[in-house]
Design a binder for these strands. Structure first.
Length: 315
DNA sequence: TGGCCAATACTG
DNA sequence: CAGTAT
DNA sequence: GCCA
């Protein structure tokens, strides 16, 4: 419930299982998998034998666990908030609506609870993408726009919509005035329904970033359309490739790529790839120098990896 | 036994 | 600052 | 919970 390390370990084991192509017949075969040892092998074997896991069903049916899982579906509420709500005696979404103290974003998260927790079919993402691109062409021509996340990994459905943009020519500077008119226009045409977060990431530490980020709620005009979570992100041209990599994911893929970078005394983030990084434990002594990363391919190359297209980046 | 990706901005 | 999000 |  509150064990980050353990949940990562389970994730790794799950990925290892997915990667395993040959059928599993014996307990020994399970234990031979990476990231699977005694404890997890026992659990997996029990699932295979009995088609279930006694401990898991007992766990899931616990009042607190199921309630926390329900509350976790509210955008803007994390582990601490959901625990507090449970402690205050709330058990249903109706309890939250009528009695809980909610932040503005949590109110939106609750209002659209069902919608936000419904997967978005690919073709709907495509239609949403078209609207944003058309509108961008009107108010800020010359933008390159790429829809990332699971959409770019060619998944049949997506949890939300992540759109990354930069200037095609790569020369013009990203400026606050680019984001605002686009948002405004999208709001005018009835596409954007709510704003969740509107932030401008400016140079505060080592790297000079001019990333602009908007999180909001959109909806297609067709009757019956659900409200969808959409993120619009402007990045400076020199950060395009690393941002694209980051926002395309998957999460697990990003992690393993960053682990590799670290082993090579480099550091990878959405802003760039740095080499000559000096670390003392987790702490960075020297941030190193930024490498020129014009394309995703270039990042793979620096890390001595062969290129993997988005659809092969599930882990 | 410590780390498990990284870096940063918003809200209250 | 703690919490949440990307 | 697994790994270095």
């Amino acid at each position: 419930t509150n064990d980050k390390g353990r949940s990562i370990a389970y994730q790794k084991a799950i990925e290892a299982l997915k990667r395993c192509t040959h059928p599993i017949r014996s307990y020994e075969e399970i234990k031979a998998l990476p990231y699977v040892k005694q404890s997890l092998a026992d659990k997996i074997w029990e699932i295979i034998r009995t088609n279930g896991l006694v401990k898991l069903s007992a766990f899931q049916s616990r009042d607190d666990v199921s309630t926390l899982a329900l509350f976790a579906g509210v955008w803007g509420a994390g582990t601490e908030t959901t625990k507090q709500w449970f402690a205050q005696g709330f058990r249903t979404l109706e309890d939250l609506r009528t009695r809980a103290r909610l932040t503005r974003t949590q109110q939106i998260g609750l209002k659209y609870y069902q919608d936000f927790n419904t997967r978005i079919p690919r073709d709907e993402v495509t239609r949403i993408e078209t609207i944003v691109k058309q509108t961008a062409d009107e108010v800020a021509p010359g933008l390159m726009i790429e829809t990332c996340g699971s959409y770019r990994r060619l998944k049949p459905s997506c949890g939300d919509i992540d759109m990354l943009m930069t200037f095609k020519d790569g020369k013009r500077h990203i400026h606050e005035s680019i984001l605002a008119p686009l948002i405004e226009k999208l709001r005018d045409i009835g596409f954007l329904i709510h704003d969740l977060i509107n932030h401008s990431e400016t140079s505060s530490t080592s790297h000079v970033s001019e990333q602009l980020t908007y999180f909001g709620v959109c909806r297609l005009s067709e009757p019956g359309s659900l409200h969808r979570r959409i993120d619009l992100i402007f990045v400076p041209a020199n950060e395009w490739a690393c941002s694209l990599l980051y926002f395309t994911g998957s999460d697990m893929f990003n992690r393993s790529m960053r682990r590799l970078a670290r082993r090579l005394n480099m550091s990878l983030s959405q802003h760039g790839l740095y080499h000559g990084v000096v670390r003392k434990g987790v702490e960075k002594i020297n941030t190193g120098q930024a490498l020129n990363t014009p394309t995703e391919e270039s990042v793979f190359l620096y890390l001595n990896l062969s290129y993997r297209p988005p659809e092969d980046r599930d882990h």
